[in-house]
Simulated assay, not measured.
Amino acid sequence: MSGYLSPGGPRVLAHRGLALDAPENTLRAFEAAARAGAAYIETDVHRSRDGVAIVSHDPTLDRVAGRPGRVGDLSTGELAAIDLGGGGFPTLVEALDAFPAIRFNIDVKEEAAADATVAAVRAAGASDRVLLTSFDERRRRRLAALLPGVATSVGSFGVVRAVLAAPLGGRAVARAVAGAVALQVPERQGPVRVVSPDSCARRTRRVSRCTSGP
């Protein structure tokens, strides 16, 4: 079993790195997060034209690079040469290798990136310090099957099931997230407030009661 969630306790995740004085999802942003004391980084991956897992939230270049084009239409070298403000698009292997003490929460944004993500995690020897997730639950299950023992977080459908199961108690929530070790819940889903101090306390107690038994 992955050691991603060990030891226990609250965890601070730097969303796309610490993107205040550095562009999001770049090695500079990850370095800033590490310097600030973050032990976990949330990031995203797409697949380059030559089949490599590339760190990028968007499938397109316009928002972060100010130019037209898609990540999947460019090679690794072409993406690395794009100036995002202190460096180009890093590969997932580069990010994992550059920060061996950091644990990564990786959102696999497209089905085409699944195999490339698995290859990158294996190449970096990072199976025990990554959590893989996707909005698509089938993709999440496929990632878990390709990397046995890796930590995963349920997709959108699993989140909905867990939220609906919460009033029924911890065992129902545990069944809703079966096969995953994490549940990442948005603060709001449309007009519905999903996360509040009370709901966090209720769900934490219920899941703890269920998972602390034999």
Rank of each mutant, 00 (worst) to 15 (best):
S156R: 15
G69I: 11
V71C: 13
A201F: 00
G87I: 07
I82A: 10
A81H: 06
G66A: 03
A116W: 09
G9P: 08
A116C: 08
A182L: 12
R28L: 15
R140A: 15
L18F: 14
P191M: 05
A180M: 00
D115I: 09
G85I: 04
V163F: 14
L20E: 14
T152K: 09
R161P: 04
L92T: 06
A65V: 13
R11L: 14
A32T: 06
R47P: 00
C200P: 00
S48D: 08
V108N: 07
R188E: 05
R35S: 04
P148M: 10
G158P: 04
G88I: 02
R122L: 11
T152C: 10
A34F: 01
R67D: 01
C210H: 15
Q189K: 00
R203Y: 01
R188T: 08
V195H: 05
V150G: 09
Q189Y: 05
L84F: 03
D21G: 15
G155L: 08
T60V: 11
A178F: 02
D50W: 12
E42N: 07
L183D: 05
A151F: 05
A113W: 02
A65P: 09
G88M: 09
A116F: 03
V173M: 15
V121R: 07
V154E: 01
A98Q: 01
G66Q: 07
G72I: 06
A95N: 05
V163P: 03
A151Y: 05
R122M: 00
H57E: 13
V192T: 08
A178R: 14
L146N: 03
L5P: 01
A176L: 10
R171D: 15
I106N: 07
D136H: 06
